[in-house]
Design a protein around this nucleic acid. Structure first.
Lengths: 194, 194, 194, 194
DNA sequence: ATCTAACCGAGACGGTACGTCCTGTCTTTTC
DNA sequence: GAAAAGACAGGACGTACCGTCTCGGTTAGAT
């Protein structure tokens, strides 16, 4: 009823590392489970003991260590939003840059899991930042977080994955969003958050 | 030198229809070329005579009839932006909703083609709309189109493909973007358009 | 409802040849379907389009060209039996020598098919030979073919596959069987052939 | 230097029983070591501490209790041969019936071990029986034991494993072999026993 | 009225990856 | 130190899909 040999963390680390390397070298589409196993010096069974599909493996490797920290108070709504935007850019860079389109495409990856990692954390940060703005008196009340979040994350997404360009103009967007939020009539809760 | 049997338009229509049906039924990831051929009552060769890859087939079926019309003058920047946003939402609905994440993922799809259809047309509309705002005196000069485009398209993208929710709050975003663009200091060209 | 590309006989021949080569080089146990495909310059799908399992592939390669000819009248029962025995030895030599134990073990190979090739043909020859002996007056009546067949095939089987020795003493066994059959009381049909 | 926990005989018995059950239920080809361990309520290590390979495990379970006793003098060569034949049939029945083809196929099983149990013992019995016939005056000299042994074992083998029929006609074969051995010229040593 | 070239459905082809399974070994904790 | 439990590396299996190719046959426009 008890024990058995515990899983080796060596394997977990090797898998994460190998997946990220191959993601960088060959891209998501050409990444194969056999190649990951070979690179990690691991049997395929050890992979499928941990992840049900290739997508879960990649997902796990990509989200490993994505920050969910609320950025420190930067003094103003605009500066705070800029910090959130920079975090978003960071979380979409590195291995994620290569993997996310593929993960988004493969239905097999649990949308809930995806949302939880890439959306919920960011929304929590955003909520904190907007709360600070209310405390400061910059905003009369906390606007709908989903709407604002999409307004921040969306442009970065398009810039990186559709236009495939680097260095999204986050300062500009932070300024846009901050200024429009401060205008009267734009801040009230307006759609029902699901 | 000429001659040969002409292609049957029946085949083209059957392919578009079959592809859209299967996209709706099984999603992009589980769509197979054999299934499309079978559903369309067509040989695989007839498909590959028209499209070099599966991605082109899907792309063609999805973009078929996407509007690239500049919306009529609605009287104000905000109303014009709203019209552009609605066009964007329309172009991302229907079969495209299922197919776009997959197309985005498959590197094999020519990024240029994709950009041409889904980006360039929208940017042209946007440019016209922004030009009208300058004529009206709502804006001092035409802002960077890439930046504004990402600001419009991005939130819709996130809403539909990441949050997988329906009916994006386009009125809100149109209002946000219009008001922030009208603020002094936000409208100048600020990053080099590639 | 008709047509489609016909199967290439080149593939069939290449598969038979490759299977036999690998059987000789590595033995049945280490023979892999991938290796056969690679050696034959053939995709695995082409194999599994023809054979449901690895066993059927090997079986087909091994039985290819097994003779089922009734040997010419050699003048006496003993000489005829010797000829049948030599045919048996021949049919169990070559690739079959390596493959038969494995085929026998793998339940997946249809016992009926196996019997049909390796048993029925030999029994038909034997029946003819025994009939000739009756015509000659060497035997009063045709004995039970199953029983005599087992008496001929069995020792060869044991010699080759259990003792793993070469050159079974077929002359001796032919002589034994012929002389015992000729004795009164040994030739009548005694068990029900299934 | 000695000491430690002694091996539990419970494990040995459970292994033999589980192996035989699974042999009967699923056959040799589908028998897995994990299944044996699970059925026996035993860890795999306990198996591999006792047997080097799966084949040895099965072999051990199958040969457990195979008699190697020289049958008592039945009064005549034919009756003695019949007794030997019956012993052969017994040793090939039960779990062995399912396992032997598989054991024969897996080269990994030591041919020496196999020979020792299934061949040498029977040949010793046969040698004794033939010696008794010489003493009785039924035979002028002891014939080549390998040859006669193949003549006895072979037909049973074919009947059980190739034809997959039950109740081999041992009386018939005993009579055949006894009568042919008694004929002049058939009894001399004729091939070199390896 | 041919001839010819490109089309058509059907389906086999080489190749590649998938996810499952099994073997024999190793590593825990428990007795 | 043996036991049960179960993770480990390695590697074969049979399935599925892609994009190409080969059949026999059809359908235009050019001769």
């Amino acid at each position: 009823m008890a024990g058995g040999r515990p899983r080796e963390s060596r394997v977990d680390h090797a898998l994460t590392a190998a997946t990220r390397e191959l993601l960088a070298e060959t891209g998501y589409a050409k990444l194969t489970v056999d190649a990951v196993a070979a690179r990690a010096g691991v049997g395929k069974a050890a992979i499928y003991r941990r992840f049900a599909t290739k997508q879960e493996l990649v997902f796990s490797a990509v989200v490993h260590g994505v920050s969910v920290e609320v950025p420190p108070d930067a003094g103003s709504l605009e500066a705070d939003l800029l910090a959130v935007l920079r975090d978003i850019v960071t979380s979409l860079s590195g291995p994620a840059l290569t993997a996310i389109p593929g993960l988004l495409a493969d239905v097999s990856v649990d949308p809930g899991r995806f949302e939880e990692i890439f959306i919920a954390g960011e929304q929590a940060c955003l909520r904190a930042v907007l709360g600070r703005a209310v405390s400061r008196g910059e905003l009369p009340e906390v606007p709908d977080v989903d709407v604002v979040h999409a307004l921040l994350l969306g442009p970065v997404f398009v810039w990186l994955f559709l236009l495939r360009r680097e260095e999204p103009p986050v300062e500009l967007w932070a300024s846009f969003v901050a200024s429009s939020l401060r205008l009267p009539g734009n801040s009230g809760p307006s759609v029902g958050s699901a």
